[in-house]
Design a protein around this nucleic acid. Structure first.
Lengths: 235, 235
DNA sequence: TGGAAAGGTGCCAAAAAGTGGCACTATTAT
DNA sequence: ATAATAGTGCCACTTTTTGGCACCTTTCCA
């Protein structure tokens, strides 16, 4: 049994028994009193809230709300969660936004600084608008998640992105653009991009984009995108 | 330096240097080649994708997409994230739902089994309806997160919940009810509960509830709540 | 085809960390 | 006062980790 396993056993026992004594805990876990005391100190260092009362009739107990996860998420998964929480907050529909934010803040802090910077840049390109549910949602934005890596690379490295596009009239075309922002007008998602061949900004519904490909370094920089509610610099 | 610190240093070095050799890595981290090899094996066990090429000119590299967080979230924070993702998916507005789900699944698996069961029960009481944005959102559901613990205890233990309520006409009343479900009709949240003194189901807008208090064991069980789109058993 | 450069494995002794026991202090209820 | 409880410091003992070594496999290159 490793130290980690034993500390998990201590937490389990504390959760099961509620209020107990250290000697009982040591007997339950099968280690010495001294070791259990060391484990309790370690668990407190890890953020578990373990209350204790000295003196006759005393004992220790675990604050149940301090039980924690130990999951390790990939950066992509964190990004998906960030989008979810940011969108819900923008739509004003998340009663527990504070808690969700606290969780995400912890996750972000545990990422390497450069990855965190990337995430913030991606989020800086994400504009979430008000709810627009009058849009027909029958075949709405079922964007293929496998496209994400290509978009991510294009956004982060400011590379040109080329893809096939099917516009509202069903006309197919091939585009090569410089991605500037993601525009979320629930339930639809748009890619906002500068189209150098047309010398204009265009927006593309994400679910109408197929076969995206990242082409490499762009030569177009420092543009400004104006949304309905003001000016927002991107790039 | 603990093993964990050293393994973090290995990840950092791999991320910084891209493609490198084990000897260079050992020099960079300040440990022996043998130890670094053991660390790499441990990191692979933890899910990091570390590619290697044997032979002259070979080396090792880290798949950047496998960089992971090490955050530890409290159960409440996980619940807030679960609500956020579940709501977004119900509203059909989350292109990367698969990724968010994968992240949450990892988080759930890392929780103690009993906490995970609690979370699933809480989510089983959560009904998320279609978007209803025509509702006046000027002073909508800014539910106080500090109420969550009381609701949580009441839901999980099937206890009676008493609170002050201000109805749509501004009439104040004190209620004692058995909570059955949470109904989310964005942007409003409702508590669906059996009111024993009125012998009827009632719903309460969460932001109009104040001073909730958990009273203890209930005597009312096994009810059925019928929503517009069908029947859903709770409790 | 052989040698050099790379990753990978098994083994062992030394070093480090963890563990258990003991004596001790502080606090509290009876 | 006494008993029961949490908590600390110390020391010997035990377990794990670490570093070094020999050796294997793979790959490139002369």
């Amino acid at each position: 049994m490793t130290a980690r396993d034993r500390q998990d056993a201590v937490i389990r026992s504390l959760r099961r028994n509620g209020f107990t004594t250290i000697d009982a805990l040591a007997c339950d876990v099968g280690s010495s009193r001294r070791t259990i005391l060391r484990d309790i100190a370690a668990l407190r260092d890890q953020g578990f809230v373990i209350e204790s009362e000295a003196g006759r009739g005393g004992g220790i107990s675990l604050d149940p709300s301090s039980v924690q996860t130990t999951a390790r998420l990939t950066v992509k998964e964190v990004f998906a969660l960030l989008i979810s929480v940011a969108s819900m907050r923008a739509a004003g529909q998340l009663p527990f936004a504070g808690l969700a934010d606290a969780g995400l803040a912890k996750i972000e802090q545990s990422l390497p600084p450069d990855k965190m910077r990337d995430l913030r840049r991606m989020l800086g390109c994400l504009y979430v608008g008000p709810l627009a549910p009058q849009v027909d949602t029958s075949n709405m934005g079922n964007m293929d998640p496998s496209l994400l890596p290509t978009f991510e690379v294009a956004f982060l490295n400011k590379h040109l992105l080329s893809f096939d596009y099917c516009d509202a009239k069903g006309v197919q075309s091939h585009r090569t653009v410089e991605p500037q922002a993601m525009l979320v007008l629930p339930p639809l998602w748009y890619l906002v991009a500068w189209d150098p061949t047309r010398a204009a900004f265009r927006h593309f519904r994400m679910d109408r984009i197929s076969s995206p490909e990242c082409l490499g370094q762009t030569r177009f920089r420092k543009r400004t995108v104006t949304f309905e509610d003001g000016v927002r610099r991107v790039g």
